[in-house]
Simulated assay, not measured.
Amino acid sequence: MNATADELAGVVDLFGGLTRDELERALEEVAFRADGGSVDEDLEETIEGALESFALVCYELPTAEERALLVVGPTAFPTVPEHATDLPHILDLEPRRLDREALGEQAHERFVRAVDDALADGDDDRLADLLDVSYDLEAWAPIDCTTDRERLDGGLE
């Protein structure tokens, strides 16, 4: 199974958030149910690409007993892959409720780091992508990216 970032987001959206291990297990189940196949060996690269594009964001839970969750990010168009609708029953995971404000703050911090990196690298393509992401991020979470956009615009001039 070759999952796209939007399909990863679709699987994650079924639960509200998944750890990386849970996401891998869910995708293995989908691949098996689809055709008895397995998950593409580039899954880690696909997850990293989804995080870089903000299709997925990492949410560090405030409690020590749970790890970070991957959640649907502001640029995703979640698409539930065929054979995935029964995953909540198969994996027996309860839907997770997230603190949207804390999630927005963490995503914004990650966004600022991405802006810093793109500015330091002088990567105009990444700066332009992040400018678009800034609008998606504001619509997705209760944050203000005005200062970040000014920095991005300055880097693009």
Rank of each mutant, 00 (worst) to 15 (best):
E105L: 12
L119H: 12
F111H: 10
L43H: 09
D124W: 13
D125W: 10
G104S: 14
E48S: 02
G73I: 07
V112G: 07
S53W: 02
L51Y: 01
L119V: 15
E52Q: 07
E105M: 13
A118G: 07
L93K: 09
F77A: 01
L69T: 01
D123C: 09
E60L: 11
H108E: 15
A114I: 09
D125V: 10
R97F: 10
L61S: 11
L51R: 00
L103A: 15
L69S: 02
D117V: 12
L127C: 10
A114L: 10
A55D: 05
R96C: 02
D99G: 08
A50F: 01
V71F: 04
A120I: 10
E109Q: 15
V72F: 03
R126F: 05
E66W: 04
F54A: 06
H108C: 11
P95I: 03
E105A: 14
D121Y: 11
E60W: 10
L51K: 00
A84Y: 02
D129I: 04
R110V: 14
V112I: 15
R97L: 14
P62A: 07
R113M: 14
A50V: 05
G104Y: 14
E48P: 02
L56S: 00
D116C: 06
F111K: 06
A84Q: 04
P74Q: 03
E105S: 11
T85I: 10
L69G: 03
A118H: 11
R110N: 12
R113A: 15
R113N: 14
V115G: 09
T79P: 00
D123P: 03
A84W: 01
T63R: 11
V80K: 02
H108Q: 15
V133G: 03
R67C: 10
I47M: 09
A50E: 04
E109G: 15
R100F: 04
L131Y: 12
L51M: 01
H83E: 15
R110Q: 15
H83C: 04
L91N: 01
L93D: 09
V57N: 04
A50S: 04
C58S: 12
G73H: 01
D124Y: 13
A64S: 08
G73P: 02
V112H: 10
F77S: 03
L87F: 05
Y59I: 01
S53Q: 09
E44K: 06
R100I: 03
L103P: 10
F77T: 03
P81V: 03
T75E: 02
H108D: 11
L93S: 05
L91W: 01
A76Q: 09
E105Y: 13
A114Y: 13
H89I: 06
L103M: 14
L87T: 08
R67H: 10
D121A: 15
D99P: 06
L70I: 05
G49E: 11
D117F: 13
P62C: 07
D129K: 13
R126Q: 08
E48F: 03
D99W: 10
C58H: 01
A107K: 03
L43M: 14
D132Q: 11
G73T: 03
D86N: 12
V133W: 08
E105K: 12
Q106D: 09
R67Y: 12
L91F: 00
R96N: 00
